[in-house]
Design a binder for these strands. Structure first.
Lengths: 360, 360
DNA sequence: GAAGTCTGTGCAAACGTTTGCCCACAGGAG
DNA sequence: CTCCTGTGGGCAAACGTTTGCACAGACTTC
């Protein structure tokens, strides 16, 4: 950011043209017109209609020639909107957040908005801190991804996969009931009856709702989930280690199971690693279903059978919703939910239950 | 962003406390002190020393009670610095950009800076456009990742993997000579003599320098690269398709080769897909070396032998360099380069040349 | 000829901070 | 008594825009 030298500053004539910000005032002096007229013309304000074309051309030419750039800080301050939205994200890891961001970015930048990005690593302290930072920067809106917000300010907000929806903020979320049903009924159809579940970490926003959906789907299928075959990941790591450890705990129970439904693709990969280390082949001995369908899933061997979450689309929807609330003047409708549908992706990490062939 | 209702607006007493921005003026009215004193105390300005402790406490308490938040737009406008850096990135895809961003974010946010993120998809028009947008937002600095900048403004800038370094901007880049040597000498030691090369797309900033380094390394090893076994990717896609197509072109030449050195991991994966489709096994028939060591590389089967680029670290270095140039007052030293070292990662996509065993 | 409507433009306030400078007063030194 | 040095704090300008209002002249309408 360039700063025009203070008046008393002698640097002014030492470097006559360096650091010279060209502002409306410069243009005004140069053209002999008022800042007001120039601003109006440059912004195509309605009041500029009464300014003759020749003058308008003169202004535009001068702006071009002097390479005038409006200072968006000043504009934002005056207009009361900054054309910027703050994006809160747990971390910049592979897959999840990245895809959502891509969807957000596309839609927002097409509408002329810029993104201010902050991460909080699921740490409560950082979260309130960063939320404050975003607020102070006077963003026009906030998108919180996979984050449970401590408190909602009056800034328009939309959340993605938020576990505890707040009043007046629209929440984009997956149809978890359908997702669980897709995964479990697939395993059921393959003859699996002893299915283990790897739950997400306590801090992950999808954990609870996904687990509820799994229970519902299991009940509908007449499938009983052995309590000891339901383990939860604890570690706050962006690697496959939590899944690896969870699967090890499953194996340590000594209870037989022929399939695992993992919380996400990365933990599914960790689980497969643990199974292979214990000499159980996937999918021959144990089937594994992942979640999300991040890029990794397709390239892993065995390629992961998984439930795709349309992350990019969810980002785009969030952006649209936010943009809509800008134009519609922030009508505080009650908490609104947008539900998106999952897609089942069949690959090679699932197969017929070995228990089934034994029965034959 | 909240806007205080205009004076003539009757909404003011309709909603007495909603939309009320608490500013220095509010505090001033509330405390009976001037905005100046309040500002000085709140900022711990040196001039605040002469203000008695009891008054200071009163001010701090009031700020707390009324939940005062400084408006960073106003502050930035006045101070001439926005505590924000703009980050230009080709796209938000898996791997490359994400890891760099993570490194940037960590260092910048620790120093109190926020990131403004924009993508340009390697499109020239968008690039100048977005560069302009970033400039207008009065960022204190710019980080351009894998981007060839059309023109440098006076804003402090640091580039990561920039092909054409500009004066006065420090460029963080990989030691490509070393990287090429690591990969090629590994293949050479395994007995490979007919090595095919998949070059990067023309728009990718590392393409040329990497290719030069490969030639140097090949010469040093006494290895001759068959011109027809050097193909270049063209497609602007974030998938493995460009690598797939490139490998198909290699196969179509009919010229024998026992190894491929790919431009990056994703294209290596695409190449492996093409080889397998043509009934050539990896690594038994053909060895493949990737580049970057994105997360994908470790999970792919066969796991990729690759050259790791310390992307996260490069991001952190860029941030540090930028922060340094802020404090040291932007001394325009000549174009400065920071070179980081690659790390060879041996996995399962490379093996002894089949030509070698034939010779035995 | 008076009244109204355009046309073309400028003044100045406002957005919320920060900061250079000034002032008033109290107390001590000379 | 005068001079000087803190102490405690306020005034107002400045950052660069945007915009409500005013205004002067020209032209039309009655």
């Amino acid at each position: 950011m360039l700063k025009k030298p203070r008046n008393g500053n002698s640097a002014q004539h030492k470097y006559p043209h360096v650091g010279r910000t060209v502002s409306l005032a410069s243009l005004s002096a140069h053209l002999g017109l008022s800042k007001a007229s120039i601003s109006r013309v440059l912004n195509g304000a309605p009041a500029a209609r009464s300014i003759p074309q020749v003058t308008q051309d003169r202004i535009l030419a001068a702006a071009q020639a002097l390479n005038y750039r409006p200072n968006l800080l000043a504009r934002s301050l005056r207009r009361g909107q900054s054309m910027t939205v703050g994006v809160l994200v747990p971390e910049l890891s592979e897959g999840y957040a990245t895809l959502v961001l891509a969807g957000l970015e596309e839609t927002l930048s097409a509408a002329g908005y810029a993104m201010m990005l902050v991460t909080h690593h699921h740490q409560e302290a950082k979260l309130t801190d960063l939320h404050r930072i975003v607020m102070e920067r006077a963003v026009d809106g906030i998108v919180a991804v996979d984050t449970s917000l401590p408190v909602i300010h009056s800034t328009p907000t939309v959340t993605i996969s938020c576990p505890d929806p707040h009043d007046g903020v629209t929440n984009i979320l997956l149809d978890h009931d359908r997702a669980a049903e897709l995964a479990l009924s697939h395993l059921y159809a393959l003859g699996h009856r002893q299915i283990a579940i790897i739950k997400g970490q306590p801090f992950s926003s999808d954990t609870d709702i996904r687990w509820r959906s799994i229970q519902i789907a299991a009940t509908r299928l007449g499938l009983s989930l052995h309590p000891k075959l339901v383990v939860q990941m604890k570690e706050n790591l962006a690697t496959d280690e939590p899944g690896f450890l969870a699967a090890q705990r499953l194996l340590a129970t000594g209870i037989a199971f022929t399939a695992i439904f993992a919380f996400n693709d990365v933990s599914a990969i960790g689980a497969i690693r643990a199974l292979q280390a214990a000499r159980r082949q996937v999918p021959e001995h144990v089937s594994v279903v992942g979640f999300d369908d991040v890029t990794l899933a397709a390239y892993h061997r065995p390629a992961l059978t998984t439930v795709r979450q349309p992350l990019r689309h969810m980002g785009a929807l969030a952006a649209q919703s936010l943009l809509h609330s800008f134009t519609s003047g922030g009508n505080h409708e009650a908490s609104h939910s947008v539900v998106v549908e999952p897609l089942f992706v069949l690959r090679n990490s699932t197969a017929q239950s070995p228990a089934l062939s034994l029965q034959c």
